[in-house]
Every structure is written in C-alpha cells, then in structure tokens.
C-alpha cells in the first residue's frame, strides 16, 4: 500500500472485518441451529456443510490460511461427503418423516443452555485476557504460517504427527473391516471371460446345463463390454 495508506483505510478495514466477523458468526450459528433442528437428515448434513464453510472463512479472517484451507479440504471435501454417503446407504424413506428428536428433548435443551448462559458467557466475559501488545506500526506482526507448521511437525511435534498417521491408518482399516460386507452375501458378478469359460466347460461335459436366461446373458455381456458402445 505504501504512501496510499490513509487513516480511513485502517478504520474502514476494521469496520469491514467486524462486519465480516458478524456475518460469519451469523452464518455459523444459523447453520448449526438448523443442523440440529431440521427434520430431514440430508438437509441437516447440508446445513452442517454450510456451518463448516463459515468456520473455514473465520479461520481465513484470523489469518490461519492453512487451517482454513485444510478445514474446507477435510470437513467439506471429505467428512461431509462421507456423512452424505452414510445417510444415503442407510436411508429408509418412510422413516425420514418420523420425529427426529428424542421425547425428552427439552432436558437436552436445558443442559447446553445452562452451560452457555451460566458458565461460558460469564467466564469469557469477566476473565482478564492478557493480550500481547500490538506490533509497532508499519511492521507486519509475526504470524506463524504453513512453513512454521511444517517445521513444527518435523521437529517438536514429530511424535504426535506419527501417532496421528498411525491413528488415520488404523481408522481406515477399522472402517473397512467394520463396514465390509460378508463375502457370501454379495452377489458374484461374472466377468465376460468367466462366463465364456463356464459355458465351454458345460458344453464339454455335454450335460443339460442350466442355461442362463438369454436376455439376462445379453445384458451381462453388454455390461462387460459396455465401454465400447
């Protein structure tokens, strides 16, 4: 900016940041409330995604670029997709109109409300935060960015980093093992080669083999070679 730095710029930018923060806060909270209250579970998941976006934007506002992008990549790109997949794999259409809340949901409302009103707000508002002094004017504040995070992961947080890697591997294997269907319960789909081989053997034996339905065979064959059409 250099010589164009005007007093309005700082003031306007401060106002702008405040307004942006309020917008993001409203987005996060509205989406979160919709997430926990809407009937349709798919809508809840979509509202959750919008809330994740708000949180990512808030990270960007707080100059944690790496975290903001990682939030979008992991939560929006992976976790929410996973949730949507799980919803669609476990969907029962009739059940979606049922009550989504437990019968005694008002007890569940009182506990968080009390926690928020009696504990969090008074503590946060009355605690004297020891904020560091603002950096001298014209000098950018020392903010640790992606490079410092990478160095930290390779030096002082090396062990936690490895543990996180093992955790992810274990979680991946565990998820596959838990969700994997039993082999017998899956219908085996023959490849074209297997079908041909099977038919050859049956013809060799000269047995009145249980021939598959011609129509079904045609469909299977065209599926196996479907790419060429």
């Amino acid at each position: 900016m250099g010589q164009y730095q005007s007093p309005c710029l700082v003031l306007c930018m401060n106002t702008l940041i405040t307004v942006l923060f309020l917008i993001f806060a409203a987005l996060i909270l509205t989406s979160a409330i919709m997430t926990v209250t809407v009937k349709n579970i798919v809508h809840a998941a979509l509202w959750l995604i919008s809330s994740f976006f708000g949180v990512g934007a808030l990270y960007l506002l707080m100059e944690a670029e790496f975290l903001g992008v990682a939030q979008v990549l992991i939560y929006v790109g992976a976790v929410s997709i996973l949730i949507l997949f799980a919803i669609m794999l476990t969907r029962d259409l009739e059940g979606s109109q049922n009550r989504q809340l437990t019968p005694r949901w008002w007890i569940a409302l009182i506990v968080p409300a009390a926690l928020f009103g009696l504990l969090i707000v008074p503590t946060v508002m009355t605690h004297a935060w020891q904020l560091p002094p603002p950096p001298p004017a014209g000098q950018p504040p020392a903010i640790s960015g992606a490079q410092q995070i990478g160095t930290a992961f390779m030096r002082e947080y090396f062990l936690p980093f490895q543990v996180a890697a093992i955790l992810l591997t274990v979680a991946m294997i565990g998820a596959i093992v838990i969700a994997f269907e039993e082999r017998e319960r899956r219908r085996r789909v023959l490849t074209l080669v297997e079908q041909v081989r099977l038919r050859q053997r049956q013809q060799q034996r000269q047995q009145p083999a249980p021939r598959p339905e011609p129509a079904a065979t045609a469909v299977q064959t065209s599926e196996a070679t479907g790419g060429e059409t």
Partner: peptide, 23 residues
C-alpha cells in the same frame, strides 16, 4: 501462500454439489 492446497480443497467442494444434485 497455500494456493496449491487451496486448488485441491476447492475442487473437492464441487462434489457436494453433485451429491445435492443426485439426491
């Protein structure tokens, strides 16, 4: 300064749009 990660992250978001379209 995290542009490469940003590209990857943002392109992953469009998957949500496809899921919404399908559902």
């Amino acid at each position: 300064n995290v542009a490469l990660l940003y590209m990857v992250a943002v392109s992953a978001v469009s998957g949500v749009g496809l899921m919404m379209a399908g559902w």
